[in-house]
Design a protein around this nucleic acid. Sequence first.
DNA 1: TGTACATCAGTGAACGCGCGTTCACTGATGTAC
DNA 2: TGTACATCAGTGAACGCGCGTTCACTGATGTAC
Lengths: 193, 193
Amino acid sequence: MLMRRSKEDTAKTRASIVGTASLRFRKNGICETGLADLMQAAGLTHGGFYRHFESKDKLVAEAAQTAFSSTIRAMQTAASKSRTSEGIKAIAHEYLSPKHRADRAHGCPLAALGSELARSDKATRAAATDGILKMIKTVASQIEGRSTRQAEKVAMAAVATMFGALVMSRIVTDSEMSDALLTAAKERLAAKD
Amino acid sequence: MLMRRSKEDTAKTRASIVGTASLRFRKNGICETGLADLMQAAGLTHGGFYRHFESKDKLVAEAAQTAFSSTIRAMQTAASKSRTSEGIKAIAHEYLSPKHRADRAHGCPLAALGSELARSDKATRAAATDGILKMIKTVASQIEGRSTRQAEKVAMAAVATMFGALVMSRIVTDSEMSDALLTAAKERLAAKD
DNA sequence: TGTACATCAGTGAACGCGCGTTCACTGATGTAC
DNA sequence: TGTACATCAGTGAACGCGCGTTCACTGATGTAC
């Protein structure tokens, strides 16, 4: 049993708790995820939690930020693989895929936790706001022939459509309807307006 | 202290529990709402809960159904007040209003509980599926000049856009951005595709 | 560079609390005769 | 129609459990001399 670690180890432990939390919150929900389980999943005992975080709420804010970052990165990667004119289609193809639908833990935190985030404290909502804005800007950057302002408006609606469709596709018990929701959103995003 | 009630009273009590639950779940979340608080809000003690429901999960499924019904009714009412060609605009105007954004308890359960519903048991998700389908059909009935199948596809994307935008507008801490999200979705829905 | 000591990451037991659920009890309702 | 009794809605105390959080303790790290 090792006690006090080097500063490097401490930072690694902290990052591991945040990373584990960002997966488990997305998979099972924030309220439904206990700190003891979480710490065990990160290979630690629950007592040590408060050496790294003031409260569960503080961890939630950090875990949300981490989750948004990784989703934004995935969107940028998807877009970078195609011409700008096809960028939105590429993002939508990944976002609205059966793979993303099936893997909440590694997917968009907005889709995994949206309604819980709306009830979270200021710090978590601020982190989510930043993440949402970056998602919108990422999508907007793929829109040609419009002012930044107009492109962002279109991007806001596009993100809403993708996120809304993915959540519904996850709720629905009818698999044909679930697929249809993903397809309908994809077609809508591909259409000129 | 009155004991056993008439059948009529029993039915009223049951309906009151479901109604109270549908409000409180939407306001505070399902996991965050305790049965003791819930029963107290309905004017009862917690012990009596199991005379009406097998478990909390069973109540959740019924409360979801109730919440969806009232939202669908509101959509139908909004649409019925305008010409069919303007029906979607009328629905979007209500759905994407600051009033709806501010009042989770009486609003759309998909927006209030979306990500929690995705993690709920089969019965609750089945109730939500029914509600989502009826919402889509309500919107689709306002679309002219398309086959039923095509109208439903467009309606799926429209519901996704409205629901997604409302949830984001509730999360965001920047009130200008929150308004912009509602407006952007409204404009997108008003546009011909 | 080597030694003495303060720091603090991590442990594991314990805190009070509220959770969903169960149960013995009460007494008006509804039923059987 | 009137009486005797079974039903069961609602009460309030209790169940075990897991929650977020606290704390005394351990001992390697990092620092001061």
